[in-house]
Design a protein around this nucleic acid. Sequence first.
DNA 1: CCCGGAACCTGATAAAAATCATATCGGAAC
DNA 2: GTTCCGATATGATTTTTATCAGGTTCCGGG
Lengths: 236, 236
Amino acid sequence: MKNLFEIPHCETCLPRLHSMFSVLSQEELGKLQLHKGCNFHRSGQVLFYEGDYPSGLYCLNQGKVKLTKVGEAGREQIVRLAREGDVVGYRALVSGTPYELTATVLEDASICFIPRQTFQLLLKENPALTAGIMRQLTQDLARAEQKQVSLAQKQVRERLAETLLMLKEFYGTEDDGHTLRSRLTREEIASYIGTVSETVIRVLSELAREGTIVLEGKKISIVNLRALREAARIPD
Amino acid sequence: MKNLFEIPHCETCLPRLHSMFSVLSQEELGKLQLHKGCNFHRSGQVLFYEGDYPSGLYCLNQGKVKLTKVGEAGREQIVRLAREGDVVGYRALVSGTPYELTATVLEDASICFIPRQTFQLLLKENPALTAGIMRQLTQDLARAEQKQVSLAQKQVRERLAETLLMLKEFYGTEDDGHTLRSRLTREEIASYIGTVSETVIRVLSELAREGTIVLEGKKISIVNLRALREAARIPD
DNA sequence: CCCGGAACCTGATAAAAATCATATCGGAAC
DNA sequence: GTTCCGATATGATTTTTATCAGGTTCCGGG
């Protein structure tokens, strides 16, 4: 498989434009290109484990990644998701602490690895990169706090509706415009919203009975966006 | 009241030593001293509201502050607490976005205000300050993610036990070594752990019946730390 | 094509937590 | 000291969610 795989070039990497690396100069991109590695990853592969010490960071060129944490009881909690253009593992690098989360590839993916030294060199050369990292950190923090409120105050039905809307934004839809491209299992959705798979299945069935969504196999289609927004209690 | 109040000096501010401002030089501290304001705040006063645009940041010299967010249903969620030495409102300043949280004074407090311009000047002059902010951001993020897992996976009893341990650390105890200095109402504790006051009261009674804590009026004493740790499911 | 395991689904039941109702306590204001 | 109101406490009930126990369907590998 690997030999069929073309290493993407940073200079022409479209996803990069939305990341913290959008501020790099041509020269700096060249340096990056020289020192980075890029690998094809199969679904299920783990980029790093919670508790590991970081040796670099990961740039998602293609594919999705889930970031999880293991609770006291041993259950996996999906803290957030990352997609093309997102950078994961940068936080442990800038804080000098072990990874807080485990990163697992969700679908076949092409992911670049930037060694710590290269990253720290760029950081020293380009102060704008620091600003980009801070922007990313503040955004991650705002989202984490928003999710805290949701977990603390909303019931499962509302959180699930909210999550379906997020998945539409995150994965996009098929050409029909309403079938989610998400391949998350019910178990994974449950892990994201803080419940068990049976409850997710039940509430999905409920939403389907009400005509808000349509279930076909694992596929979920959002056919009544307004009703789903209402179920999520998200103000227009 | 205000006329009785002595403005603290940054140079001799003990709480500062643990904050992101620990890296400032004598000269920079002088600048800070010159441009900052300092006020005495009564319990209940609001430093800023979620959605406001920031005009500066707040340095807690004395007293505690709760940082809250209002949920869809209008209920207040305590996202985190801040105490002497903590800096609040810095995030909106570095991200250039409105405040995500509302900051409310919990007990009579002395709080310094550093205007945006002064902060940005210091930021430009001293790169080490940037590193301090990042450290703070990564720490806040790690805590927010930890709390996410707790809210998603633990039951009320465990979260309450966890919170009592946090309150012991955060507020400290009376001279007896086990009575919490916290003045939080049951309602506020509920808002912190994501439940309602009745449930907090019930579980507190339960813990008291079991001999883990002692309730005397609003006061809470932790008399069996080991049992409380166990109830929180926190590994030694 | 068939097989097997994982994912999905449904029902019954139990547990957890919210809600509603009411009573008492405690501390601040007078 | 008395009054009064918010905070604390407890009970009864309902709602929400987890757990357990069975099915069925889907899908990849032989």
